[in-house]
Design a binder for these strands. Structure first.
Lengths: 327, 327
DNA sequence: TCAAAAGTGTTATCCTTACACCCATGT
DNA sequence: ACATGGGTGTAAGGATAACACTTTTGA
């Protein structure tokens, strides 16, 4: 019955997200002696952990002295380091459960280990317009990669679409517009095309000098599939902002509307239209004024608001259905 | 390093969905000698299966002679049979990865094993108005259960909300309206309150004659957490319909618009407004006429349509953002 | 007084929602 | 001819997306 061959180790990893100076940051750890970083992770132990999420919380608290608030399961990957074939025969098999966790930035604490998430996925930050590397590096390389694919008829499963179609949908070329939620699709394309370092580390694609040169510009690598988990986390968080008030897990208790907008912009990687954003927040009744106001260095002081928790009890799906301005 | 205590078995289960005579059906298997059904399932074996999904496909094909098309991962549960504490000490630990799979109904094949999904979750079918059992049985029992909870302030994580709030949000009482996507929340409430048989099977709640009487009316039980996986599958599918054209994984190649509408209604468990549904389908350009038409038993023959696969290459998020009419 | 940031008002447009009516066929 | 289901036109209301302008403060 319980033959040993079907026993597997379950790894738990979390992308722990907060905001620091208008930039989303994730908590990272060093991985042994290598130069690549990892997410906080650990092994699920059914004897010690009541549930998967409980196990994750214990690991994170042990490794980071950080108490997690909001936690959400993302996805379970069966091919952690994807190069199954190259693994030593007796190696243990690991499946990997990825989580998203949100927390408030605490200036008091030991703040080592936080890294800007756009350092890992630089093409995702459109706050100052389209990142140049998309047109100069990524699209030419992906177009060349897509040449090697002659299929044309679309199938149901998106992963069976021809490469060129996937490219158009993921990166918004040929009249299709950029969808900030397709973070994972973009990363997977880059991985398959060998344009991120993990692809050659895993041995999925064989290294060439040209590829390695490109990889130097496509963001920082991570251990195992951790960058894929990060991409999944960003995608989920960007989507979730629109229908659940999760942004307030990251915001301090008191904040200005501009700070709220900048946080949403930082996460979604896009500019928002000021007036529409404010109207949205207003008639979603997500916040209430505290009465206080905050003097910036210059300019008119801004009114301070707090999250109106009661929306959780009132509305079916309260969120910031932000309408992205074109800019 | 690889201490035996952290080795776990990974179970794969799938809710395989299709439509039969305007009712959603899922494929079930008998479970050993018991009277409760199970979903098709098997164990993930890293030596035989390249990925989790590949493992699932192999198991399903072995057990059902059915080829899966669309497959999507739902969730990984760490507490399969949730009564950890009552399990024998030496028992193997299983975590369970749930999948949603869609397929077309094939009248040619051996069609044993298909069951109406509303047999398992009868409160989810609102096509003929609100199911009576909600008001006669479920709400009174849940209200009584919610009495035993005195917390009042809402917290961020929905599971930390007071019971009464969760009840209002899940079942749409007190001015909040029914949200057909909250299938899992509803099932979890019923489980926690001991109103489904699994709760007493697992030992989470101790059985009383009153509870057992109620459980006879809250749908058919399943093995382990399979009914929870089914609830997750329904929730995901109902949500997905609105932004991806997955409905066409279930429809035959040619169909009338009425048949399409009835299928969407069957899955979402609600009535849709005919004209609006048609306009929606039309200006989403999801279908194209085949030219042929179909003579029903009575009435005007209906034009036949097929899925316009090209939408997959054109639109960012093609789906049936169905606007639910009140009726 | 001027720069800088906060904070409004208003409109054109599109989408949603609901109404009621006409059409083609079999019996 | 009439019952039955298929199929359309159109108008009210609301949400969205963009416009440009006023207000309040610190230096």
């Amino acid at each position: 019955m319980a033959d040993i061959s079907s026993a597997v180790e379950v790894g738990l990893s979390a992308a722990i997200v907060t905001i620091h100076k208008n930039n989303p940051v994730i908590l990272c750890a060093d991985y042994e002696l290598s130069d690549v970083l990892s997410l906080p992770y650990g092994r699920f132990d059914p004897l010690k952990h009541r549930t998967l999420e409980a196990g994750l919380r214990l690991w994170v608290e042990a490794q980071t002295a950080l108490r997690l608030g909001y936690v959400e399961q993302l996805y379970t990957f069966g091919d952690r380091g994807r190069a199954k074939s190259t693994a030593p025969a007796g190696d243990t098999h690991v499946i990997s459960v990825g989580y998203l966790a949100l927390t408030r930035f605490d200036a008091e604490q030991n703040n080592d280990g936080w890294r800007y998430w756009y350092d890992f996925l630089p093409w995702e930050d459109w706050r100052n317009g389209k990142p140049a590397l998309i047109d100069t590096l990524i699209l030419p390389a992906l177009r060349e990669w897509a040449q090697g694919d002659k299929r044309s008829s679309p199938a149901y499963d998106l992963h069976l679409l021809p490469r060129l179609t996937r490219l158009r949908l993921a990166f918004g070329t040929d009249g299709i517009q950029w969808d900030e939620e397709r973070v994972l699709e973009r990363y997977e394309l880059l991985y398959e095309a060998g344009l991120v370092r993990e692809a050659t580390i895993d041995g999925t694609v064989s290294a060439t000098p040209q590829l390695e040169e490109l990889q130097r510009h496509t963001g920082r690598a991570m251990v195992f599939d951790h960058r894929r988990i990060l991409a999944t986390a960003i995608a989920r968080l960007r989507a979730k902002l629109k229908y659940r008030p999760v942004i307030f897990e990251i915001m301090p208790d008191c904040f200005t509307l501009t700070a709220l907008q900048e946080t949403v912009e930082a996460i979604s990687g896009r500019h928002l239209h000021k007036q529409n954003f404010r109207r949205l927040v207003e008639n979603a009744e997500l916040v209430e004024p505290t009465g206080a106001s905050l003097s910036q260095l210059r300019g008119r002081p801004a009114a301070l608001y707090r999250f109106r928790r009661a929306v959780l009890e009132e509305r079916p799906a309260p969120g910031l259905r932000v309408t992205l301005s074109q800019r």
